[in-house]
Computed example of a mutant assay.
Amino acid sequence: MSSSALPLFRFGVIADPQYAAIPPHAVMDRYYANSLAKVAEAIEVFNGWELSFVVTLGDVIDRSFSSFDDILPVYEKLRHEALFLLGNHDFSVSAGHLSEIATRLGMPSPYYSFSRHGWRFIVLDGNEVSTFAPPEGHPHRALAAQMLAELEENGARNAHRWNAALSDAQFAWLADEIAKAGEAGEKVIVMNHYPVHPPSEHGMWDSERIVALLAAQANVVAYLNGHDHVGNYGKAGACHFVNFKGVVDTESENAFAIVEVYAAHIEIRGFGREESRTLVY
């Protein structure tokens, strides 16, 4: 078998477990408590593969800081590194816990990057400018309220308080990370909780500037996200935008994926409700 027929590396993806020990919301098809068993099932599959890491694309919990005490021990059975990023529901906790979420998830900081096998992964904090994540009285809260009001006034479809934006500082950091990756000869995969493309009611408030940046960079291959539980896919420039389906949806059917990175394409192996895709780059 030629070397190009083998993946360079693989990693696992889970989106939106949204665990809470509460009854299901049948109308929305959300079964919060069932996510413990679904995540455990995904981990059992992941443990049968050689993976670099497993990333959960935000909304580990639906609400209540104590929910982390139930779901994070499930990840301890994973034989691979577990990586997290922040989703909007992860901040559905009492005000005193808002600043502790990233630490509770074992994250180095709310946004960060790491390199594997000559690829750079850039992990965004899509909640930075929001009406729920910054502490009370923080300038980002006031900025979020202003941005949301302007979007509402313009009739924007993503004018919802469960969406958010990057700060200008984080956006500049993203551009800088992509540039540094380019200098190092690294290809880039960006990961965030929120979609930015195709435009949708779940999109980041500053989707347009993010898409414009990523679509203009030759070394940015993909942007992976959750948040919109039905899933989605789009392409802008050479960048593939993949929205993974939510684990919390449906009573028993799971949704997770193994992403295989090859020399000229990415293979997404979907399990349960998650779709399989081939992304050529």
Rank of each mutant, 00 (worst) to 15 (best):
H202E: 07
H80L: 06
T56G: 02
L85N: 05
F114W: 04
K77H: 14
A142V: 15
S252F: 15
A26D: 06
R209D: 00
I122R: 05
L214N: 04
D69E: 15
P139R: 13
R104T: 13
V247F: 00
F121E: 00
S4I: 10
N158T: 11
R209I: 01
N219D: 04
H80R: 04
Y281I: 04
A255P: 14
V45H: 11
P17E: 03
R10G: 06
L51K: 07
L83I: 07
A181D: 00
E152K: 15
P139W: 13
D228Y: 12
F46R: 04
A95V: 14
V247E: 09
E44M: 07
L8V: 12
L86T: 11
E44Q: 13
Y19G: 03
E177H: 00
G106K: 02
H25P: 00
G137K: 03
R63N: 01
R79W: 02
N243D: 09
G234C: 05
E201W: 11
Q18M: 07
R269V: 15
E153F: 12
A169W: 10
A263W: 09
F46T: 01
I258T: 09
P110V: 07
L51C: 09
I122W: 06
H140D: 11
E274W: 05
G270S: 07
D125S: 04
S276Y: 08
E260Q: 10
T103V: 10
V230C: 06
A142H: 08
E150T: 13
A42P: 07
W119P: 10
S113Y: 03
N88R: 05
A15L: 10
L6Q: 14
G246L: 11
N88L: 05
Y233M: 12
G231M: 07
V55D: 05
G203A: 15
P198M: 10
A216C: 03
A33Y: 04
V211D: 04
Y223E: 08
K235P: 07
A172H: 08
E201L: 11
P23C: 06
T131Q: 04
F271W: 10
S109K: 11
S113W: 01
T103H: 07
A149M: 08
S130D: 03
G12A: 02
F171N: 01
G126K: 06
D29M: 11
Y19F: 15
F91S: 00
E81K: 15
